[in-house]
Amino acid sequence: MPGKDRTYRFVIVVFGLLFRLMGYRFDVRGVDNIPTSGRAVLAGNHIGFLDFTFIGYAARPRGRRIRFMAKTSVFQLPVVGRLMRAMHHVPVDRSHGASAYRRGLALLDDEQVVGVFPEATISRSWLLKPFRRGAAGLALHRDAPLVPVVVWGGHRIYTVDGHRSLRRGVPVTIVVGTPLRAERGETVDALSDRLRASMELLLAEAIDTYPESPRDEDDRWWLPHDRGGAAPDPRTAAVLDREAVARIGETFE
């Protein structure tokens, strides 16, 4: 597939230029945990629309291009959809998830890195939502390392509920954790639970070491409720998620 990555290389260059133009201050930790060759499943948290661009950008020093699994609705956007298909990302239709899962397995068989957001949609609490089993299942069924990664700060740039900003110099922290390997006899659910526990620790580290605090009371929206922020707690956030889906149907989250 490397010979088919011209579009992917172009997109990386474009986003790299945009990130430098905006002066985003990246703090990438643990990037050596991304293997430089061979199959791998990379599982990320989901707090904003640009998460996959930040994770993909952070993986550049390892020479890997991540094939992300994303909602079908993203592929229906006129320009974005064409780019997503050209970069060989995988559309996920909730009503036909088996097809996307098979494509993920095929990519792993081709020694690719598959990117999965186990929460499926953006978390309005900024904390981890319940996980779906796809990331753990792919890793277990292909004996691939399962690499946890979290992004923090990217939601301040572009996320749900109209939160977007052109402010320059926003810090973005990306923490890549130690790869997990399925143990002998381990179930998909058990591996998924271990993944979530690992990502909870990484997310706490990213939040606690983030170099900025809210500027004023109105700016507390991007902090979780348990850090003194104005974000809803996970239970309230789940209600807001259901209301959003009922209001606008299929979302691009």
Rank of each mutant, 00 (worst) to 15 (best):
E183K: 13
I157R: 12
D143Q: 11
I248W: 04
A190P: 06
R142A: 04
D110R: 11
V11C: 12
D32S: 15
S37T: 12
Y101P: 02
A59V: 08
T187N: 06
G153A: 08
G134L: 07
D189G: 13
P35S: 04
A190M: 11
R124P: 01
N33E: 14
T53I: 09
P145Y: 01
F15T: 11
G177N: 09
S73G: 07
V176A: 14
H225V: 05
G228F: 02
G16M: 03
L166S: 10
R164P: 04
M69P: 01
G81V: 00
A136G: 07
V90G: 11
E205W: 09
D161P: 02
R220D: 07
E205K: 12
T187P: 08
D218S: 15
R181I: 09
I47F: 08
P214G: 08
A135G: 13
H163L: 06
T159K: 02
T7P: 03
A59G: 10
Y210L: 09
W221P: 07
P232W: 08
P145W: 00
P2R: 15
R181L: 13
L223N: 02
D27R: 15
R164F: 12
V170T: 15
V74E: 10
R196Y: 11
H89W: 06
R60P: 02
S123E: 10
D189V: 13
T159H: 02
P179K: 13
V13H: 09
H141F: 09
R168G: 10
T187R: 12
S213P: 07
I207W: 03
R227M: 05
G249Q: 02
S192Q: 09
I47A: 13
F75G: 07
Y8G: 01
T121V: 15
H141D: 15
D216M: 08
F10C: 06
G137H: 10
G162R: 08
V175E: 03
T187E: 04
M87S: 00
Y101H: 07
W152Y: 11
D110I: 03
R64P: 12
G16H: 06
L240D: 09
